[in-house]
Amino acid sequence: MTERPDHDAWNAFCDALRAAGDRILADDFPTSAPEERAEGFRHLAQQAACWLTWSVGHADPRDPRFMRQNDLFTQWGGPNVDNLYKHARIDAAGAYRIRGNMHSCEEFLMALRIGNMHQEKYGTLAEVTATDLGIGPGDAFEILVGGPEPADPAVRWVPIPDGARMVNIREYYYDWHEAEPAVFTIERLDVPAAVERLSPAAIADGLGEAASQFTGSVEYWNEYQRAARGRGEDNTFIQPRNEPKGLKGLVYAFCFYNLRPGEALVVESEAPIARYWSYQLYRLGWFEPVESIHATGGLNHRQITPDPDGLFRVVLAADDPGVANWLDTGGRSEGMLTFRCAWADNRPEPVARVVAAADLARELPDSPRLTPAERRAQIAAREAHAAWRFRT
């Protein structure tokens, strides 16, 4: 019988798709309601597109290209709504050049990684920020990654640790305004790009990795949220920590909310002394952001207004309470709230409490307010920014 590894790998990938469609209907996934089930199948479709593109279209570190992930269509692993993510394959023995222009991007974090958290082998081996490299908004830049250390100390150079297989860029956008986003390109310097025809073995490897990443992502992040929820009590923060094997500069605190009709969650915190921080809502099961472009499912340090006493308070509610710092749950009674703090000199511990939505005016008498017209203007500005950041 003729061996056809490519055909076998294709069938295995299709089998993984079919199995995942059955798997998410189990009790440990949030698919009991028709709307939740629809979100689940959309998530599977987008994960299939994501990992086929990465594993088949971006498989060769000899000819790397940045792939945009965790954008509007390929969300996994709790992406930050203030980020735009780019990934490229690298060879730890190779030499690369990354060039571009920051335009309106205010910060980036470059991580050299073994793999993604849902893979068997994962972890961040090195990280550096635009600030570390002396790069700011509007700057053109060139960074050498890997290869011999340049003799000129003015050249920006980042060595590649042994075992690194990918470079990940997180672009940060604090002020959501209508402006040109950053541009990044990557090229390999030490070997020519591959030009040979694709072999059955190579496409089989790509399809096999795609199936593994697809299945791993769907299973891992659902269990990740379930395990995190089990570490604490609903409507109470699991206090800040660094993610194991994750980025050293980022701290996370989780609060799983569970609200009855007419209830709201008030979150209070001292001001972090940090270059960046935010509060963001996520869907259970899929770890995708709650709507943050056409609604306020996430707010960062530039978008949250402090109260007169200097504390920061945000309100989770299904309906607009008129409070400026409103996190719109999108009508979801349950979900995950994440507090992120990056490059911080302190580690504030947010506190949450459930209140009646009808009592918010009495509970928060001095908190800044927005009129309906001001809320519409706020959303319009977010939509205009997103149209630029996520344009093709």
Rank of each mutant, 00 (worst) to 15 (best):
Y224G: 03
E223W: 05
V218G: 05
Y224M: 08
R229A: 11
A227W: 09
S212C: 07
D205L: 11
G208P: 04
D234W: 10
D234Q: 12
G208N: 11
T215R: 13
V218Q: 00
A201L: 14
N222E: 05
D234P: 13
Q225P: 04
R231H: 13
E223K: 14
Y224V: 05
A228Y: 09
G206C: 04
I203E: 01
S212H: 07
Y220S: 02
Y220I: 04
Q225I: 06
G230S: 10
Q213P: 02
V218M: 09
Y220Q: 00
I203N: 04
A204N: 09
W221Y: 14
Y224L: 10
N222T: 05
S217C: 14
A228G: 02
T215K: 06
N222S: 10
V218P: 01
V218D: 02
W221K: 08
A211D: 07
E209N: 14
A211V: 08
A211Q: 07
E223R: 15
I203G: 03
E209A: 10
D234K: 15
G216E: 03
Q213H: 10
E223L: 12
A202N: 07
S217D: 02
N222L: 02
T215C: 04
W221H: 13
E233C: 11
R231I: 01
A211M: 09
E233L: 10
F214K: 07
R229H: 11
E233D: 11
A227I: 13
N222H: 05
A204V: 10
G232E: 00
G206M: 06
V218Y: 05
D205Q: 15
V218S: 01
D234A: 15
Q225G: 03
N222Y: 02
R231W: 00
E219F: 05
S212V: 08
S212R: 15
G216I: 02
R231E: 09
A210F: 03
Y224W: 13
L207E: 02
S212A: 15
A227S: 12
S217A: 15
E233F: 00
A204R: 13
A228L: 14
E219G: 00
A202G: 09
E219C: 08
D234S: 13
G232W: 04
S212L: 01
E209S: 09
A204L: 08
A210M: 05
A228S: 15
G216T: 09
A204T: 12
R231A: 04
V218E: 01
A204F: 08
A201R: 15
T215V: 13
E233M: 11
G232Q: 06
E209T: 13
E233H: 15
V218N: 04
T215D: 00
A228T: 15
R231S: 07
A228P: 03
E219P: 00
A228R: 15
G230T: 06
G208I: 05
A210T: 12
E223Q: 15
R231T: 10
G232I: 03
W221L: 04
G230W: 00
Y224K: 10
R231G: 01
L207R: 12
Y220L: 05
R226P: 04
G216Y: 04
D205W: 10
G208C: 06
R226V: 10
D234T: 14
D205G: 12
I203H: 08
A202T: 13
